[in-house]
């Protein structure tokens, strides 16, 4: 386990005893299987992603097919999660809805992370006037509550898929930019960055090789946290009627439709609410694990 390489000879000019190698694969395995919560989170994420991918093949009914014969039915053998006020199968709507929700949840934080990090690193590394302009811009965006900002843009541009993605992305950029800027300011002080300058590296290379890998941990953690927020935000927008357009399902508008008919049948709300909670929780747990692996200090 802890093999220590002994000095081969006793020459005063060599120093060859080093600590055992922890190994990246071992660390990865440890991260995945070391904690029960991480295993659970990964399993949940995997199930949801598989379901979303296979939606057309595994959903028992057409999510848009209405049936006046079975309105507001409680769960049964035919409809596992019951039906809504139009007689649509809730399970099928949930399965198809997971596609929209997860797509929003994954694409917008990823885009926001890319743009936000670029802005934040630029501001943090160059400082001065560049920093002041970018920081004011970010403050401006931050001053708006993200939901309000999203509603505003959606109201102007309309609720098409990419518009919603753009909306959520813009709403998330300031958070990433701030974290990236603060981390860059800290990493910039590290002697290895000065060493890179002294060695003769160009600025873009320094940023890509020495800054970004060392600020990646908080960004990735933020991303996993905001996958959850994005799903929530999409749900809120759909709930308000400016997200995914009816009759197409997403978890958000399943809740909205369900709310109109809360006393007729609570099943759509319970199902969608549970799904959102599960995904959000599993992404957050996964985020914690990722942070522990990416941080070189805590990775033993």
């Amino acid at each position: 386990m802890s093999t220590v390489i002994q000095p081969s000879s006793l020459s005063p000019d060599v120093d060859n005893t080093i600590a055992p190698e922890p190994g990246f694969r071992a660390a990865l395995m440890h991260m995945i299987f070391g904690r029960k919560s991480t295993v659970f989170a990964l399993a949940v994420m995997l199930i949801f992603i598989v379901v979303a991918v296979l939606a057309p093949w595994i959903s028992p009914y057409d999510p848009l097919a209405q049936s006046f014969l079975s309105i507001n039915k409680p769960p049964s053998a035919a409809h596992w999660l019951g039906t809504d006020q139009f007689g649509r199968d809730v399970l099928s709507r949930m399965i198809h809805g997971s596609r929209n929700s997860l797509l929003f949840g994954l694409i917008s934080p990823a885009l926001a992370a890319i743009f936000g990090t670029a802005l934040g690193v630029t501001a943090g590394y160059f400082g001065g006037a560049v920093d002041r302009v970018i920081s004011r811009l970010i403050d401006l965006l931050l001053a708006f509550p993200e939901l309000l900002l999203a509603i505003m843009i959606a109201a102007v541009l309309g609720g098409a898929f990419w518009n919603i993605i753009a909306v959520i992305t813009v709403a998330f950029i300031p958070g990433f930019a701030r974290v990236a800027r603060a981390s860059t300011l800290a990493v910039k002080q590290e002697p290895y960055v000065e060493a890179a300058v002294a060695v003769g590296l160009r600025t873009p290379t320094i940023i890509i090789r020495h800054i970004i890998p060392n600020i990646a941990a908080p960004i990735v953690v933020l991303m996993t946290l905001w996958v959850a927020s994005a799903i929530r935000l999409e749900a809120s927008l759909s709930f308000l009627g400016i997200g995914t357009r009816a009759p197409n399902p997403s978890w958000g508008n399943i809740i909205r439709d369900g709310l109109n008919n809360l006393f007729g049948s609570p099943w759509p709300i319970i199902a969608a609410g549970f799904a959102i909670t599960c995904v959000v929780l599993s992404f957050n747990l996964f985020g914690d694990a990722v942070r522990d692996v990416l941080d070189p200090e805590t990775a033993e």
Partner: peptide, 9 residues
């Protein structure tokens, strides 16, 4: 600083 001057990654 022998600890800080080598990029950990």
């Amino acid at each position: 600083d022998p600890y800080g001057s080598l990029s950990p990654r």
